[in-house]
Write a protein that binds this DNA or RNA. Structure first.
Lengths: 200, 200
DNA sequence: TGACGGTGAGACGAAATGCGTCTTAGTGTC
DNA sequence: GACACTAAGACGCATTTCGTCTCACCGTCA
């Protein structure tokens, strides 16, 4: 099993539990999961699970969502190398993020079978967390072009727009399309965050 | 909604409930379903559900499985027209049944996420029911070639073989392949049920 | 109109399930 | 041998689910 020669770096117990949570969620949906399901799937006792995530299901689910988001932005950031222009960077961010959202089978399944839960985690409950983690991941990149304070507002704005257009596509804007996204960003984003360049 | 001009013949309450059960099973799996889930999905009160299926979940699930099987054999029988030879008929039966089993997404999902439940319904618990319904559907066809008593044994044998080879494929026999199935039937089936033709 | 069957809503107690904490015993490490 | 970590599972409590029941409502038909 945990062969020392294996390429994988022997996942920690915490990671095993979060992986198990993912399996359970895909199998049964968030609404139907119990602590025991996750503990059994992870091959871990319930006591261990409470030790790792004091607070039970709420804390565990929060950790799960954070990890999912970190994975999301890690994949996203991997598409953002070697870009030396703010507009190009923002276009790539919204296009890649939109593409990834659209191709996320897990998310699609959640939206289909548990729309309430899924929408909540993308809006009222989840959006602050999304913005927080997006900020952590994207500030280092965006910060090269705009002041840190502005960068925060910019990342938040992008996150809101990507999610909004993902959940309710527009007839006029397609953030999954580079052309359309560039036009959108040039019109609605850059003027607000680079006023000195608005007339260029 | 229930437009009178609609082609569909206004599904009965019972059918609506069984449809709802199917939706719930696909969404959550059999292990996690509650009576309320099905009642809500069907837009029916719990009282009505108990009125229709006295005995609750067990009775409802039994009815559900029976309907699924009847659908299965109805589709199967639709592939069996205009065959006037016993061997051809048996080949078509096992090939079509195997193909249908292999392409059944619902069944595949069940086998993946709830192997215990799925296997039980194909073997220890479910096989008698499968054989019973297979007999009802196939006896009229097979009965043209062999006596009724023999026909029952033949249908049962075929059902057992199709399920066995579906669950655990063989290196030597592929009942989804017409050539292979014909060879299998000529070797193992016909000699036992048409001994007079065995040497032909 | 009034009787009647079918239904939704929901109350009810009983049973089952899930939760969170705790204790115990086992295992590997230092 | 002390120690940290864990699986297993018992415990009491809260919640959910079950199965039955009553009642009000609605459409149909006499």
């Amino acid at each position: 099993m945990t062969s020392p020669a294996s390429a994988a770096p022997a996942p920690s117990v915490e990671e095993r539990v979060l992986d198990a949570a993912k399996v359970c969620i895909e199998r049964w949906g968030m609404a139907k999961i119990t602590i025991d399901d996750i503990a059994n799937e992870a091959g871990v006792s319930r006591a261990t699970l409470y030790r790792l995530f004091p607070g039970g299901k709420d804390v565990l689910f929060e950790a799960f969502r954070v990890r999912e988001l970190e994975d999301f932005f890690t994949r996203l950031a991997s598409h953002l190398d070697h870009i030396d222009d703010l507009e190009d960077l923002l276009v790539r961010v919204v296009v890649s993020a939109t593409e990834e959202l659209r191709s996320d089978q897990h998310l699609a399944g959640m939206l289909a079978s548990e729309p309430g839960e899924a929408l909540t985690s993308l809006t009222v409950d989840g959006l602050p967390r999304i913005i927080r983690i997006a900020t952590v991941f994207l500030i280092p990149l965006v910060g090269e072009y705009v002041p840190r304070r502005e960068a925060s507002r910019l990342v938040e704005f992008l996150a809101r727009m990507v999610i909004s257009f993902f959940l309710a596509p527009s007839d006029h804007v397609d953030l999954g399309d580079a052309e359309s996204a560039r036009s959108f960003i040039a019109t609605f984003v850059l003027p607000a965050f680079q006023p000195s360049l608005a007339s260029s």
